[in-house]
Design a protein around this nucleic acid. Structure first.
Lengths: 239, 239
DNA sequence: GCCCCACCGTGACCTGCGTCACGGTAAAAA
DNA sequence: TTTTTACCGTGACGCAGGTCACGGTGGGGC
């Protein structure tokens, strides 16, 4: 079955081929069946807002593929990206479990399949399956760690250069799982978005990336970034 | 039973008088008994480090009373306070559940009673009691929200004045539970610590608090801070 | 009483980076 | 093809706030 967005549709969690590779979905057979019954599958185009800051929670969203940008914004229109969620992550947990309105907006970066589960179904689901509760808790610890890393990046860095270096290093760490510790990575973000990740401005990011290129620390070809001198990058990030 | 630190000791969770007021401890009778069997109670003086950044997790710490300062620091010695944990909160969850080393340090602000639970006891505890798992998830959502609020404060504010105003407003929100929405609050932190909460410096905090006093927005008497003009404070915080 | 130490208060300096402004390039739309 | 739109690149300027330096004050130990 093919969707109009051009990727394979996977209606069934039970038969899902990547289920065991996905932390949250890799649960006991009885839990998967419950999950399958309780969820509803949708397909959205890039740019779709799964939920918006200030909305009361409807439920949780399981990202089956693609990525989503999670961000908040101030009244003045300034935006800060809290994290980039990847396939397999669950979004909207804090609001659903906390019973309070969403404090951030989730926007799909690419066209994605998303499994939705209403709040009361979800709470029942994790109450009945202790392994699912564990997975949920694990997802939350991941979120906490990511947020703390964000705080460390924003608060402990003396300069924007340091923040940018930290971000690039963080990305090299993420992709480490794919090839053998290659220093090449995909950077499919525009300068403005990078600025929003580190709490800076578009111009400053442009200038700093330019300076890093000139210093032969990195090389940029389109959306590909190659770290030529990881040591110096680490030094810039404060070791 | 009185401890050498001058407060009442409560060895028994089952008989604990404040148990029902504490989110995490307010669980089913069978769970409380399990908790009681699995935990060990200790008393520590102010300044005790429950765990340190980089340590492998030993377990989780339930703060029975008092407060704890949770912070990380950079290699250059710069410190940022992630949150102030209050009585009833559980510390060290991320490391214990994630199975990874602590990414922050927890230091007692006052002398406290702390209930400790080793990692494997804790995982068994929440696997056996779905209500306890729920409480744990709830605590984690709280942590996430706090961290996100931190990111918003650090990343979205244009000026340090704005960050400070946000922090003060956050505090007025916290104490709202005590008297009837009074604008008076305890601020038992030194300027340096406030600086570490908003990612600034001691001198700047001194200057800004001075300016707020001069503008009649707040009044400070020892450790007590009175917000005279909440409207203006909100305006400074970006509405 | 006295000293000491931890904090607060304040002035002077200087630099990082936010802001504004405009020009270039490349892909998409027409 | 030309036009439009979305990003990137770069110069000029100004100021918020970090840094250094030193002086004041209050409380606890002796």
């Amino acid at each position: 079955m093919r969707s109009p967005y051009g990727f394979e549709i996977q209606e069934s969690c039970v038969a899902c081929p990547v289920r065991h590779a996905r932390e949250f979905c890799n649960v006991s057979p009885s839990a998967v069946e419950d999950l399958q019954r309780s969820k509803s599958t949708s397909f959205y185009p890039a740019g779709t807002l799964l939920y918006i800051e200030g909305q009361p929670p409807r439920g949780v969203y399981i990202l089956c593929n693609g990525r989503a940008k999670v961000y908040t914004s101030s009244k003045q229109g300034k935006v800060i990206i809290l994290k980039i969620a990847h396939a397999g992550e669950v979004l909207g947990l804090e609001a659903a479990l906390g019973g309070r309105e969403h404090e951030e907006t989730a926007e799909l970066v690419e066209s994605c399949q998303v499994n939705f589960m209403a709040t009361h179904d979800f709470t029942r689901y994790i109450a009945h399956h202790s392994d699912a509760a564990m997975k949920t808790a694990f997802q939350l610890t991941q979120d906490c760690r990511a947020a703390q890393e964000g705080i460390r990046c924003l608060g402990l860095s003396g300069s924007v250069e340091e923040k940018l270096a930290r971000l690039l290093l963080h990305w090299t760490g993420e992709t480490r799982s794919l090839p053998h510790r290659d220093t090449r990575l995909k950077m499919p973000y525009k300068h403005e978005e990078i600025a929003q990740m580190i709490g800076s401005t578009r111009e400053t990011v442009t200038r700093l990336l330019g300076a890093l290129k000139k210093k032969k620390v990195v090389e940029i070809k389109g959306a590909t970034l190659i770290v030529k001198d990881p040591e110096q990058l680490k030094q810039l990030a404060g070791e």
